[in-house]
Amino acid sequence: MTITFYTKNHCPLCDKAHKILEELQEEVSLEIRKIDIYQSEELIEKYGLMIPVITAEGEEIQYGQINKESLRKRLLTINK
């Protein structure tokens, strides 16, 4: 499964979320597609106040303060 991880530089919440995603890769087959929102005005407008944002199959599944356990459950549900 490919997930998209919207992030920006110098973002402690983003760093923490990325670490959680890397840990979950050991349990769930994930490809992490990392996108800096500052590549696009549209992304800044859409996600500027929400980042980090994790999407899968076009759906936002978590944003802001990422919770590892609920994210794991959500990813396992999507991956079925």
Rank of each mutant, 00 (worst) to 15 (best):
L21S: 03
L76K: 14
A17T: 08
L71S: 08
L71H: 07
D15P: 08
I37R: 04
Y47L: 03
E45A: 11
K68E: 15
K19N: 14
E26S: 13
I54N: 00
I32L: 09
T55E: 09
G64D: 02
I35N: 02
M1D: 08
E69T: 15
D36N: 06
P12F: 05
M1L: 12
E31D: 15
T2Q: 15
I44N: 02
Y38L: 05
I51F: 01
K46I: 05
P52N: 06
L43Y: 01
K8H: 02
C11K: 04
I78C: 05
P52A: 06
I54L: 03
A17D: 09
M50K: 08
K16Y: 14
R33N: 15
E42H: 08
N79G: 11
C11W: 02
N9I: 09
Y63Q: 11
E31G: 13
T77H: 13
Q65C: 12
S40M: 05
G58C: 05
S29F: 13
I51V: 06
E22R: 11
I3G: 05
Q65M: 13
I32G: 06
K80Y: 10
L21T: 06
C11G: 02
E27W: 12
T2L: 14
A17R: 01
N79A: 14
K8D: 07
E57D: 14
E60H: 03
E60Y: 01
I20A: 09
E22W: 07
I78R: 00
K34P: 10
I20Q: 06
L75N: 03
L43M: 04
L76V: 13
I51S: 00
K8V: 00
Q62D: 12
L13H: 08
Y6K: 04
P12V: 08
D15F: 09
Y38D: 07
R72T: 13
I20C: 10
K68S: 15
T4Y: 02
E22H: 09
K34S: 13
K80P: 07
G58Y: 01
K19D: 15
I54T: 07
H18N: 15
Q62I: 08
H10S: 11
E23Q: 12
K16P: 11
G64L: 03
E26N: 13
E31R: 14
E41M: 05
E26R: 13
R72N: 14
I78T: 04
